[in-house]
């Protein structure tokens, strides 16, 4: 079976390279055809615009009869992506997988997921709550994360300063950002949570 997997992966890499989207990348991590690195560009007119997001792709031995395991390596602030592990909540990676689907369609679907979040079926409950309760703040936070982790263009000075405040207290940068994002950028709330 691993035979089919290898053959498929070869074709799928060619398919992505040939593809005209210019927004996808797919490359091998080792020679075993089991670990791949994907990259997608943040879709335009979203808080992820201008960012490049790396994905870890693991091919099971039973591929393509079972879905690949995909997670974000680049940190993302999105209701359907875990801000801690990068795990993705997407139907085609679970029960809606079909053997005829390819990694190209998977990458495109993840890109589409970035453009249209589904907060009612969340992977990250904290992000989803912010999305529902305060969408402008969610967008700004997502933009800030895109800027910091995915080389996005929009710098949010206010947020950078708040992170800096916590850094001066000796808090790790990423932990500080997570705490601030979780507490809607309320420095007091975030500090309390970190030091409790």
């Amino acid at each position: 079976m691993a035979n089919i997997a290898a053959k498929r992966i070869k074709r799928e890499i060619i398919e992505v390279v040939k593809g005209e989207e210019g927004v996808l990348k797919l490359e091998l991590v080792n020679n075993a055809w089991t670990d791949l690195l994907g990259e997608i560009a943040g879709p335009p007119d979203t808080p992820y615009e201008g960012g490049l997001f790396k994905l870890e792709i693991k091919i099971p031995e039973t591929y393509p009869f079972n879905p690949p395991k995909v997670r974000f390596i680049t940190k993302v602030w999105h209701p359907n992506v875990s801000s801690v592990t990068g795990a993705i909540c997407l139907d085609i990676l679970k029960d809606q997988w079909a053997a005829a689907l390819t990694l190209r369609t998977v990458l495109l679907s993840i890109q589409a997921l970035l453009a249209s979040a589904e907060p009612n079926d969340p992977q990250d409950a904290v992000v989803a709550r912010q999305y529902i309760e305060n969408e402008p703040l969610f967008e700004l936070t997502a933009r800030h994360w895109t800027n910091v982790y995915a080389n996005g263009p929009t710098v949010v000075w206010e947020f950078n300063q708040k992170v800096q405040t916590l850094l001066e207290m000796g808090v790790d940068e990423h932990n500080a950002r997570v705490a601030l994002s979780t507490y809607n950028w309320d420095v007091e709330g975030a500090t309390e949570q970190i030091f409790s």
């Binding site: 089919i4 053959k7 498929r8 074709r11 393509p64 009869f65 053997a99 005829a100």
Partner: peptide, 12 residues
């Protein structure tokens, strides 16, 4: 829609 020249799953 499904060409019968190659199999879309195994690419054979």
């Amino acid at each position: 829609t499904s060409t019968r020249t190659h199999c879309a799953v195994c690419a054979n």
